[in-house]
């Protein structure tokens, strides 16, 4: 195995530069008539003509011209896009299309391929038409409708504009004087308040119950209601 690799190595041993006569050493060997030292390029003709700057060092090229604007700069700041960047990354962008176009009627959040109404298909297969012309009487006859309401599933057009927005407003309702927070801490206080209110309601109920019981006891012992037992709910109500 070792022998084999050695053989292979030996066979691949470069005896001359792969670039051939482009090497400055090879140039010296060829003894060009360049005593002045000004010739710093090799012009190769043939199938792929090229000018190779050889210079005093092998493979030395002119330094690359530096662009004024490179990745070393903060490009976001350079193009004044920091504000936009902060705007999009600072707050959570809602995922649905309806949140971007809240005034658009109908259900627009469903994937377009389900309804065969994608914008991509419009680009891939553009509709063929000459121009828009007003409909004549015959064409309008095709739009003669039957009176009566539409079936329920086709009535999404009846949704009032901005209904979704209203719902959202209700969700993020906050008291005057309070500032809405993005991390949802405002919702937390609301929840706390709701719990508190619930507790208050429960207390009120208990108090009312106790009052009722007291009343019943009084009625029980009063001479006006002699044999009314509290275990008979149908009669208590009366």
């Amino acid at each position: 195995m070792n022998e084999l690799t050695r053989k292979v190595d030996a066979s691949f041993s470069p005896k001359s530069s792969p670039r051939g006569s482009r090497s400055p050493m090879a140039n010296q060997m060829l003894s060009r008539n360049d005593s002045t030292g000004t010739l710093k390029m090799t012009i190769s003709a043939g199938k792929h003509p090229a000018v190779v700057h050889s210079g005093p060092f092998y493979l030395m090229k002119d330094p690359a011209t530096e662009n004024e604007l490179t990745g070393a700069n903060n490009l976001m700041a350079h193009f004044n896009l920091e504000h936009s960047y902060n705007k999009f990354t600072g707050k959570k962008v809602r995922d649905s299309l309806s949140s971007f176009l809240p005034t658009l009627p109908g259900i627009i959040d469903t994937p377009a391929h389900l309804t065969n109404s994608s914008l991509r298909s419009l680009i891939e297969k553009p509709p063929v038409f000459k121009e828009f012309t007003l409909l004549n009487q015959h064409q309008l006859a095709a739009f003669r409708l039957h009176p009566g309401p539409l079936p329920e599933q086709y009535r999404f057009m009846n949704q009032p504009l901005g209904q979704r927005r209203h719902r959202r407003h209700r969700k993020h309702k906050y008291r005057p004087g309070e500032t809405p927070t993005q991390d949802g801490s405002g919702d937390g206080t609301d929840m706390h308040e709701k719990k508190h209110k619930k507790k208050k309601n429960d207390d009120d109920k208990e108090r009312k119950k106790k009052k009722k019981e007291k009343k019943k006891k009084k009625q029980k012992h009063s001479p006006e209601h002699p044999g009314l037992s509290s275990s008979d709910p149908s009669r208590v109500g009366l």
Partner: peptide, 30 residues
């Protein structure tokens, strides 16, 4: 952008993704 709209997604997410990618690439090149 049309892919976002056709998918029923907010096209602003595309802008956001683009800006994040641009910033990441800028940092990588830097």
């Amino acid at each position: 952008v049309f892919e976002y709209i056709d998918g029923g997604r907010n096209p602003q997410l595309y802008t956001k993704d683009c800006m994040e990618k641009a910033l990441t690439k800028n940092e990588q090149v830097n």
